[in-house]
Protein backbone atom coordinates (compact mmCIF):
# COMPACT_ATOMS: atom_id res chain seq x y z
CA UNK A 1 0.00 0.00 0.00
CA UNK A 2 2.78 2.42 0.91
CA UNK A 3 4.54 1.99 -2.43
CA UNK A 4 1.34 2.60 -4.40
CA UNK A 5 0.47 5.61 -2.24
CA UNK A 6 3.91 7.17 -2.80
CA UNK A 7 3.81 6.48 -6.52
CA UNK A 8 0.40 8.09 -7.00
CA UNK A 9 1.34 11.17 -4.97
CA UNK A 10 4.52 11.58 -7.01
CA UNK A 11 2.55 11.01 -10.19
CA UNK A 12 0.14 13.85 -9.32
CA UNK A 13 3.05 16.24 -9.19
CA UNK A 14 5.12 14.91 -12.10
CA UNK A 15 2.07 15.27 -14.34
CA UNK A 16 -0.06 18.43 -14.59
CA UNK A 17 -3.03 16.74 -12.88
CA UNK A 18 -2.12 17.74 -9.33
CA UNK A 19 -1.23 21.31 -10.23
CA UNK A 20 -4.30 21.83 -12.40
CA UNK A 21 -6.60 20.45 -9.73
CA UNK A 22 -5.10 22.60 -6.99
CA UNK A 23 -5.12 25.69 -9.20
CA UNK A 24 -8.75 25.26 -10.20
CA UNK A 25 -9.78 24.49 -6.64
CA UNK A 26 -7.96 27.52 -5.22
CA UNK A 27 -9.30 29.70 -8.01
CA UNK A 28 -12.94 28.73 -7.38
CA UNK A 29 -12.52 28.94 -3.62
CA UNK A 30 -10.89 32.35 -4.10
CA UNK A 31 -13.78 33.68 -6.19
CA UNK A 32 -16.38 32.43 -3.72
CA UNK A 33 -14.32 33.85 -0.87
CA UNK A 34 -14.07 37.21 -2.56
CA UNK A 35 -17.76 37.33 -3.47
CA UNK A 36 -19.13 35.69 -0.33
CA UNK A 37 -16.90 37.26 2.31
CA UNK A 38 -14.84 40.18 1.10
CA UNK A 39 -17.54 41.78 -1.07
CA UNK A 40 -20.32 40.95 1.38
CA UNK A 41 -18.26 42.36 4.25
CA UNK A 42 -18.75 39.34 6.48
CA UNK A 43 -16.43 36.92 8.24
CA UNK A 44 -19.03 34.17 7.92
CA UNK A 45 -17.80 31.82 5.19
CA UNK A 46 -20.94 29.70 4.89
CA UNK A 47 -21.93 31.13 1.50
CA UNK A 48 -18.47 30.31 0.18
CA UNK A 49 -18.60 26.81 1.62
CA UNK A 50 -22.06 26.11 0.21
CA UNK A 51 -20.78 26.67 -3.32
CA UNK A 52 -17.74 24.46 -2.75
CA UNK A 53 -20.05 21.45 -2.91
CA UNK A 54 -20.40 21.95 -6.67
CA UNK A 55 -16.68 22.48 -7.14
CA UNK A 56 -16.07 19.16 -5.42
CA UNK A 57 -18.71 17.45 -7.44
CA UNK A 58 -17.11 18.44 -10.73
CA UNK A 59 -13.39 18.54 -9.97
CA UNK A 60 -12.78 15.64 -7.59
CA UNK A 61 -13.39 13.19 -10.48
CA UNK A 62 -10.37 14.79 -12.19
CA UNK A 63 -8.02 13.42 -9.56
CA UNK A 64 -9.61 9.98 -9.46
CA UNK A 65 -10.26 9.38 -13.15
CA UNK A 66 -6.78 8.04 -13.90
CA UNK A 67 -6.24 6.02 -10.77
CA UNK A 68 -7.43 2.62 -11.97
CA UNK A 69 -8.47 3.16 -15.58
CA UNK A 70 -4.96 4.10 -16.66
CA UNK A 71 -3.51 1.02 -14.99
CA UNK A 72 -5.86 -1.10 -17.02
CA UNK A 73 -5.07 0.74 -20.25
CA UNK A 74 -1.28 0.63 -19.83
CA UNK A 75 -1.39 -2.92 -18.48
CA UNK A 76 0.43 -1.81 -15.35
CA UNK A 77 -2.32 -3.52 -13.42
CA UNK A 78 -0.44 -6.69 -14.31
CA UNK A 79 2.46 -5.49 -12.20
CA UNK A 80 0.18 -4.51 -9.32
CA UNK A 81 -1.95 -7.64 -9.37
CA UNK A 82 0.98 -10.04 -9.65
CA UNK A 83 2.86 -8.39 -6.79
CA UNK A 84 2.49 -9.54 -3.22
CA UNK A 85 -0.07 -6.85 -2.39
CA UNK A 86 -3.70 -7.34 -1.46
CA UNK A 87 -6.44 -5.78 -3.59
CA UNK A 88 -7.48 -3.68 -0.61
CA UNK A 89 -3.89 -2.44 -0.38
CA UNK A 90 -4.01 -1.32 -4.01
CA UNK A 91 -7.37 0.44 -3.69
CA UNK A 92 -6.62 2.14 -0.37
CA UNK A 93 -3.15 3.16 -1.51
CA UNK A 94 -4.71 5.04 -4.40
CA UNK A 95 -7.58 6.34 -2.26
CA UNK A 96 -5.26 7.89 0.31
CA UNK A 97 -3.07 9.42 -2.39
CA UNK A 98 -6.09 11.23 -3.82
CA UNK A 99 -7.23 12.15 -0.33
CA UNK A 100 -3.91 13.75 0.53
CA UNK A 101 -4.05 15.88 -2.62
CA UNK A 102 -7.60 16.83 -1.71
CA UNK A 103 -6.56 17.81 1.81
CA UNK A 104 -3.93 20.10 0.30
CA UNK A 105 -6.76 21.74 -1.62
CA UNK A 106 -9.11 22.10 1.32
CA UNK A 107 -6.30 23.52 3.45
CA UNK A 108 -6.90 26.85 1.71
CA UNK A 109 -9.91 27.57 3.93
CA UNK A 110 -8.08 27.96 7.24
CA UNK A 111 -5.83 30.38 5.34
CA UNK A 112 -8.89 32.35 4.24
CA UNK A 113 -10.06 32.30 7.86
CA UNK A 114 -6.76 33.77 9.00
CA UNK A 115 -7.04 36.55 6.42
CA UNK A 116 -10.53 37.33 7.66
CA UNK A 117 -9.40 37.34 11.28
CA UNK A 118 -7.34 40.43 10.46
CA UNK A 119 -10.56 42.33 9.78
CA UNK A 120 -13.07 40.86 12.16
CA UNK A 121 -14.26 38.09 14.39
CA UNK A 122 -14.15 34.71 12.57
CA UNK A 123 -16.58 32.01 13.78
CA UNK A 124 -13.78 29.44 14.03
CA UNK A 125 -15.87 26.53 15.29
CA UNK A 126 -18.27 26.77 12.35
CA UNK A 127 -15.42 27.23 9.92
CA UNK A 128 -13.50 24.19 11.14
CA UNK A 129 -16.68 22.15 11.44
CA UNK A 130 -17.41 22.87 7.78
CA UNK A 131 -13.85 22.12 6.70
CA UNK A 132 -14.17 18.73 8.39
CA UNK A 133 -17.49 18.21 6.62
CA UNK A 134 -15.89 19.20 3.36
CA UNK A 135 -13.09 16.72 4.00
CA UNK A 136 -15.47 13.79 4.47
CA UNK A 137 -17.61 14.87 1.53
CA UNK A 138 -14.49 14.85 -0.62
CA UNK A 139 -13.50 11.43 0.70
CA UNK A 140 -16.90 10.11 -0.39
CA UNK A 141 -16.55 11.66 -3.85
CA UNK A 142 -13.05 10.21 -4.17
CA UNK A 143 -14.18 6.68 -3.39
CA UNK A 144 -17.02 7.02 -5.90
CA UNK A 145 -14.52 8.31 -8.47
CA UNK A 146 -12.14 5.40 -7.89
CA UNK A 147 -15.00 2.96 -8.20
CA UNK A 148 -16.03 4.42 -11.55
CA UNK A 149 -12.40 4.47 -12.66
CA UNK A 150 -12.20 0.73 -12.04
CA UNK A 151 -15.08 0.11 -14.43
CA UNK A 152 -13.48 1.49 -17.57
CA UNK A 153 -10.09 1.89 -19.18
CA UNK A 154 -10.99 5.20 -20.75
CA UNK A 155 -9.97 8.17 -18.63
CA UNK A 156 -12.59 10.53 -20.06
CA UNK A 157 -15.38 8.03 -19.56
CA UNK A 158 -14.20 7.58 -15.98
CA UNK A 159 -14.35 11.32 -15.32
CA UNK A 160 -17.75 11.90 -16.94
CA UNK A 161 -19.31 8.85 -15.30
CA UNK A 162 -18.03 9.94 -11.90
CA UNK A 163 -19.57 13.39 -12.34
CA UNK A 164 -22.87 11.75 -13.32
CA UNK A 165 -22.69 9.53 -10.23
CA UNK A 166 -22.08 12.57 -8.05
CA UNK A 167 -24.94 14.43 -9.70
CA UNK A 168 -27.28 11.55 -8.92
CA UNK A 169 -26.34 11.85 -5.27
CA UNK A 170 -26.96 15.60 -5.54
CA UNK A 171 -30.45 15.32 -6.98
CA UNK A 172 -31.50 12.68 -4.47
CA UNK A 173 -33.46 15.44 -2.72
CA UNK A 174 -35.34 16.39 -5.85
CA UNK A 175 -36.11 12.77 -6.63
CA UNK A 176 -37.28 12.25 -3.08
CA UNK A 177 -39.53 15.34 -3.23
CA UNK A 178 -41.02 14.17 -6.50
CA UNK A 179 -41.81 10.75 -5.13
CA UNK A 180 -43.26 12.21 -1.95
CA UNK A 181 -45.65 14.31 -4.03
CA UNK A 182 -47.18 11.29 -5.69
CA UNK A 183 -50.47 10.55 -4.05
CA UNK A 184 -53.18 8.29 -5.32
CA UNK A 185 -56.69 8.75 -3.97
CA UNK A 186 -58.18 5.98 -1.85
CA UNK A 187 -55.08 3.78 -1.95
CA UNK A 188 -53.63 4.63 1.40
CA UNK A 189 -51.11 1.84 1.66
CA UNK A 190 -49.58 2.75 -1.69
CA UNK A 191 -49.15 6.35 -0.60
CA UNK A 192 -47.38 5.13 2.52
CA UNK A 193 -45.02 3.06 0.41
CA UNK A 194 -44.17 6.10 -1.72
CA UNK A 195 -43.57 8.13 1.39
CA UNK A 196 -41.25 5.52 2.78
CA UNK A 197 -39.30 5.38 -0.48
CA UNK A 198 -39.07 9.17 -0.53
CA UNK A 199 -37.71 9.21 3.01
CA UNK A 200 -35.26 6.46 2.24
CA UNK A 201 -33.88 8.31 -0.75
CA UNK A 202 -33.73 11.57 1.17
CA UNK A 203 -31.41 9.87 3.64
CA UNK A 204 -28.93 9.30 0.84
CA UNK A 205 -28.72 12.98 -0.04
CA UNK A 206 -25.17 14.32 -0.04
CA UNK A 207 -26.24 17.90 -0.27
CA UNK A 208 -28.53 18.04 2.78
CA UNK A 209 -25.90 16.62 5.06
CA UNK A 210 -23.20 18.89 3.78
CA UNK A 211 -25.48 21.92 4.01
CA UNK A 212 -25.96 21.25 7.69
CA UNK A 213 -22.25 21.77 8.25
CA UNK A 214 -22.28 25.13 6.48
CA UNK A 215 -25.07 26.33 8.73
CA UNK A 216 -23.03 25.49 11.80
CA UNK A 217 -24.46 22.12 12.75
CA UNK A 218 -21.77 19.49 13.37
CA UNK A 219 -23.68 16.26 12.91
CA UNK A 220 -21.64 13.14 13.68
CA UNK A 221 -24.17 10.93 11.91
CA UNK A 222 -23.46 12.81 8.67
CA UNK A 223 -19.77 12.06 9.04
CA UNK A 224 -20.59 8.42 9.63
CA UNK A 225 -22.75 8.55 6.51
CA UNK A 226 -19.88 9.83 4.37
CA UNK A 227 -17.53 7.28 5.92
CA UNK A 228 -19.97 4.49 5.08
CA UNK A 229 -20.10 5.72 1.49
CA UNK A 230 -16.30 5.53 1.43
CA UNK A 231 -16.31 2.01 2.85
CA UNK A 232 -19.04 0.78 0.50
CA UNK A 233 -17.51 2.19 -2.67
CA UNK A 234 -13.98 1.09 -1.83
CA UNK A 235 -15.38 -2.35 -1.13
CA UNK A 236 -17.17 -2.32 -4.48
CA UNK A 237 -13.93 -1.28 -6.20
CA UNK A 238 -12.11 -4.22 -4.63
CA UNK A 239 -14.91 -6.47 -5.85
CA UNK A 240 -14.60 -5.10 -9.38
CA UNK A 241 -10.86 -5.89 -9.40
CA UNK A 242 -11.55 -9.33 -7.99
CA UNK A 243 -14.30 -9.96 -10.52
CA UNK A 244 -12.05 -8.99 -13.41
CA UNK A 245 -9.72 -11.75 -12.36
CA UNK A 246 -12.49 -14.29 -12.56
CA UNK A 247 -14.12 -13.27 -15.82
Amino acid sequence: MGAIFRREITSYFTSPVGYVFLAVFYFCAGIFFWAGCLQALTADMSACFALMFYVNLIFVPLITMKLLSDDKRLRTDQALLTSPVSLAGIVYGKFFAALVLYVAAVAIFPVFGMILSLFGEVPWSTTFGTVIGLFFLGAAFISIGIFVSSLTENVVVAAVLAIVFNLVFLIMDTISDLIAKISIDNVDWLNKVFEAIANGIKNLSFYDKYNEFTTGVFNVSSILFYLSIVAVFNFLTIRVLEKRRWS
Binding site: S11, T14, L74, R75, T76, D77, Q78, A79
Partner: peptide, 11 residues
Amino acid sequence: LPEIPPLYLDM
Protein backbone atom coordinates in the same frame (compact mmCIF):
# COMPACT_ATOMS: atom_id res chain seq x y z
CA LEU B 1 7.43 -10.24 -17.33
CA PRO B 2 4.07 -10.02 -19.10
CA GLU B 3 3.66 -9.82 -22.86
CA ILE B 4 3.43 -6.03 -22.66
CA PRO B 5 5.90 -4.86 -20.01
CA PRO B 6 3.89 -3.20 -17.20
CA LEU B 7 5.69 0.14 -17.19
CA TYR B 8 4.55 3.43 -15.76
CA LEU B 9 5.52 5.64 -18.66
CA ASP B 10 5.64 8.85 -16.63
CA MET B 11 8.36 7.56 -14.28
